[in-house]
């Protein structure tokens, strides 16, 4: 086989597996989404390699479409994540276990006792966005929002 094609297939395969493992193991929604983007990059690498081996431009065209779809995906998914965060104040996927139907008995969600017992890591401060503008005046009634949500971990 063409050694260049083989190289890009190998590297693409390893990157794809990193993406899959990350998607399965991580619990932060944003990092899971980044893992999906990693898988898309792996596929793009393979497409470019095949296009180069076949001496035509279909691989590159497909990669441009992948880029388009990834941009759309990122826009919508990040909006959804923000909405989820405002509703539940966490980005943990394991609180969405209860999306399943009531009468279907899934595995019990794991509760990390070790994490509760172990001492917390030192808190790092990162720059946040300061709120800007005036606080909007609400007309008397404040819709109740579920704050203080139980996080399982």
């Amino acid at each position: 086989m063409n050694p260049q094609l083989e190289n890009s297939l190998l590297i693409g395969g390893v990157l794809l597996v990193f993406g899959i493992v990350g998607f399965l193991t991580r619990r932060n929604l944003i990092v899971m989404f980044l893992s999906v983007e990693l898988m898309l990059q792996a596929v793009a690498l393979n497409l470019i390699g095949f296009g180069h081996a076949h001496c035509n431009y279909h691989g590159q065209s497909f990669t441009i479409f992948i880029l388009t779809v990834a941009a759309c995906e990122a826009a919508i998914a990040l909006m959804l994540f923000l909405a989820i965060y405002h509703r539940r104040k966490t980005l943990d996927v394991s609180i969405w276990y209860e999306l399943g139907e009531v009468d279907v008995h899934l595995a019990e969600p794991q509760i990390d006792k070790e994490a509760m017992l172990s001492e917390p890591e030192p808190v790092q401060q990162f720059p946040g966005l300061t709120p800007a503008g005036l606080e909007p005046v609400l007309d008397g009634q404040i819709t109740s929002e579920r704050e203080g949500v139980v996080t399982r971990a």
Partner: peptide, 27 residues
Amino acid sequence: VIMLASQSGSSVYDRRFRNPFLSITMG
């Protein structure tokens, strides 16, 4: 988005992984 939707520093669900043995072996 990470800055808009994050607690201070890394939280517990970032440090703990789901089913690492199974997923990594499968990978």
